[in-house]
Amino acid sequence: MHPGDLKRFEINGYAQGTTYKVTYYAADSLVTQSQTDSLLAAIDSSVSLYRPASLILKFNHSEKGISVDHHFAVLVKKALEINRETGGLVDITVKPLVDAWGFGANKTTAFPDSAKVKAILKHVGGNKIRLKGEFLYKSDPQVQIDLNGIAQGYTADLLAGLLDKNGIQNYVAEIGGELRIKGHKPDGEPFRIGIEAIDDNDIHPSPLQMVIAPGNAAVTTSGNYRKHLQANGRQISHIIDPKTGYPSQTDVISVTVVAKDGITADGFDNGFVTMGMRQTLDFIAKRGNLAAYIIYKKPNGSIADTATSNFKAIEVK
């Protein structure tokens, strides 16, 4: 087919409390909004904490666990892998802590004291859940999970899968700032992805911090400041450190991760916020197959950025 025969199609929608956008190039509209919407509805009914009848709520309210669906199992399996790889810094059983700190579906008016945190920590940990076949077990009734940190990246993968299945070779699928990219534009130019700049405020549209051309990959970003609460004039992070039980207090403001798929990139990014800048760079150097761009706060309070060398390689100057 001549490149000139390809037309640009765009699907814009609203799902998982955020926006999604699929852009693809094809001779005809091979994928429609009703398809993407029903795909997103399926994942919502499985792992959304805001959907009253979702499977994840059923699991959280259960005594011993429940049978889960395919999406749920894939997410849990990956989350447990990443939990082991990060030495427990990424942990989906962190949910009771997220709730206690007021970042859950219900807001709290007071922060938990150290005794409360200690008590909750007894029900937090990768070893508190076990997936056997399609049954997800929990070690005690208080164990609850939160897949919000990883589900959006996986959703981008599912959108990509839908496009692949329909023979689309060139696309960008984005949900809530998490992306899957494949192919290139009809003129042969790569897809360019902008990374939003950090400002002292989070609403002022400012120029993009950086533009990358990642090729066939997933890009996700985890930020430590858009969602925060204020306590005694101090902002606290919405990312809870599952080892200490307290909100993460590292130098990292945001991490952008590039990986082969969204579930991996999104699965790691929150953990990198908790790890801190230096440890994240070491971790990625050792592990391979990931690239990262980190915006962080220096000890003197000024904002700086750094990237792994493989990330620098995809930067568009």
Binding site: G17, T18, T19, K21, T23, V172, E174, G176, G177, E178, L179, I181, K185, F191, R192, I193, G194, I195, E196, I198, D202, I203, L208, V211, V219, T220, T221, S222, G223, N224, Y225, R226, I253, S254, V255, T256, I295
Partner: peptide
């Protein structure tokens, strides 16, 4: 650009 990723995740 063809897409934007952001820590702000402004919705």
């Amino acid at each position: 650009v063809d897409g934007v990723t952001g820590a702000t995740r402004i919705v």
